[in-house]
């Protein structure tokens, strides 16, 4: 299965350079004060969602999966490889953003937001990325990248559109009802459980879907 993950990284090599430039540019803009560093947190979701989709697109174009299933990794290994790769991308992008935020904070350019809060936001974005991939991966594996891309984009717009609208509403005086103290305290843990649990459930669904797929 490590061969499949290695293949995904090789297939993404060109894109990875783009993402690196993306991080450097946004990091630079944050240093310059154009954006607040918290913008970097959103990149975790963006990168973690786009990279698995790109690898599925590359697999579809080359019809790689027909061959992969004929190898000893079989269907289960193909699904497991894709989920492991996604998990690695979520972890990698979270760590890169956390390091960038740390560097910005050390250089005194992290703005008004305290570092622990931004790191918590980054972790939360990692959780959201896991959850969103949990929704899109079964669709990608069932229908292929072409058909599933629309659903993924709609999901991305829904989540970030909602956040943007909420922000806009709050700027205009809308006040969110205060969460009970116990819920506020449990929120990080709940998000972690929902994210990891959702991703695990998604994995089981994908295995069932892929077991029935014909090539």
């Amino acid at each position: 299965m490590t061969g499949l993950i290695y293949k995904d990284f090789l297939a993404l090599r060109g894109h990875l350079t783009t993402y690196l430039v993306f991080f450097v540019v946004y990091g630079g803009l944050c240093v310059a004060g154009v954006f607040t560093p918290s913008v970097l947190c959103g990149i975790v979701v963006l990168v973690s969602l786009i990279t698995p989709m790109s690898t599925v697109t590359a697999d579809d174009i080359s019809r790689w999966n027909r061959f992969a299933i004929a190898t000893p990794v079989c269907r289960r290994g193909v699904v497991a490889g894709k989920y492991l790769f996604t998990l690695l991308m979520v972890l990698l992008s979270t760590v890169v953003v956390a390091v960038l935020l740390g560097l910005l904070s050390l250089s005194g350019r992290s703005g008004e937001d305290p570092l622990p809060e931004m790191l918590l936001s980054t972790l939360a974005c990692g959780g959201i990325a896991l959850l969103m991939n949990g929704v899109t991966l079964p669709l990608l594996l069932k229908f292929g990248a072409e058909k599933a891309r629309l659903v993924s984009m709609a999901l991305f717009l829904l989540v970030f559109g909602s956040v943007a609208l909420l922000g806009l509403a709050m700027d205009n005086g809308f006040v969110l009802p205060a969460l009970p103290a116990w819920l506020a305290a449990a929120l990080p843990g709940l998000l972690a459980i929902v994210s990891v649990g959702g991703f695990a459930l998604s994995y089981c669904i994908s295995q069932a879907v892929y077991a029935k797929k014909e090539f």
Partner: peptide, 30 residues
Amino acid sequence: KARIGVVLDESTFHDSLTAPQVGKILSRLY
């Protein structure tokens, strides 16, 4: 499948790969 070698009716390796890279991938699968 560990004991079967397969050649399908069309190439299924990604366009961006080189032959040595294909070997590295397959060495981890077989």
